[in-house]
């Protein structure tokens, strides 16, 4: 099983000075899986994702992504990852189409018409085909997130990281985004790592989850999120899923 894992976190810890965010975190993520990292605010979800995408070397342990140690990120590995940041992180001086074309321009020798066609398809996949010529300043937050996903999909990566894809979206847009993630997984076979604390979204899309807790400074539960909701006896897990004050 270990050989097939796309992500293999081995006893990872993150400390900022004397403050430990989390420690002893180990997990694996496999192909075609939607893996959700969840937990309350400040538990280190985004920090763990930044370790996986090579932006933050762990204080202890290591994270292997596509077999590569992300303490030493490599361009060949990074181009095989797609990342959507919380606000979309679109380049403000480019249209949406140009944003999605950028990775194709940097990493392929495709003719410009092909790059344009491919980028337009990616925007079409996330429902933004008609907005291709708009600038990021002219679109809503939900559209920016979807465009962020389209750009992350540009190179057809096997592994896509999404940071809070549902945060700040209305329920209809959020449900549309969840369906898009499921479709992309089913039709393109992409593995998703989703950082989220949106319960509905987690229960809709998550195959497996890893729950971090701020007070425990680490993992308090792993498994199918629906089973955790229904069967876990851990009061912290129940507090999260039943929306109770801790």
């Amino acid at each position: 099983m270990t050989d097939a894992a796309l992500v293999d976190a081995q006893d990872v810890a993150q400390r900022f000075g004397d403050r430990t965010v989390f420690q002893h975190v180990s997990f694996q993520i496999f192909p075609r899986e939607i893996f959700v990292i969840l937990g309350g605010s400040g538990c280190g979800k985004s920090t763990l994702m930044r370790q996986m995408i090579g932006l933050l070397p762990p204080s202890e342990g290591r994270v292997l992504v596509l077999g590569h140690d992300m303490r030493f990120p490599d361009m060949d590995v990074l181009r095989r990852l797609g990342v959507m940041f919380q606000g979309g992180a679109l380049f403000g001086n480019m249209t949406l189409l140009e944003n999605v074309m950028l990775p194709l321009e940097m990493h392929t020798d495709l003719p410009i018409e092909a790059r344009r066609d491919l980028a337009a398809v990616k925007l079409g996949l996330v429902g933004l085909a008609d907005a291709a010529n708009l600038q990021p300043a002219e679109i809503s937050g939900g559209m920016a997130k979807r465009c962020g996903i389209a750009r992350a999909l540009a190179l057809d990566p096997p592994l896509l990281f999404l940071d809070e894809p549902a945060a700040g979206l209305d329920p209809v847009t959020s449900a549309g985004l969840d369906q898009l993630i499921l479709d992309l997984r089913d039709q393109l076979g992409i593995c998703f790592v989703v950082v989220s604390h949106e319960l509905t979204s987690i229960l809709t899309i998550g195959d497996r989850c890893l729950m971090l807790d701020k007070s425990a400074k680490g993992v308090i539960a792993t498994g199918d999120p629906r089973k955790l909701r229904d069967e876990s006896t851990d009061p912290r897990v129940q507090a999260f899923f039943r929306r109770k004050a801790a």
Binding site: V121, G124, Q187
Partner: peptide, 22 residues
Amino acid sequence: PEISSLLTRVRAARSVKAAPKP
């Protein structure tokens, strides 16, 4: 079937044309 399904989705994605620049 996988290719057919993907092709259907890509056709649908291409069916909407971009609005001209404002």
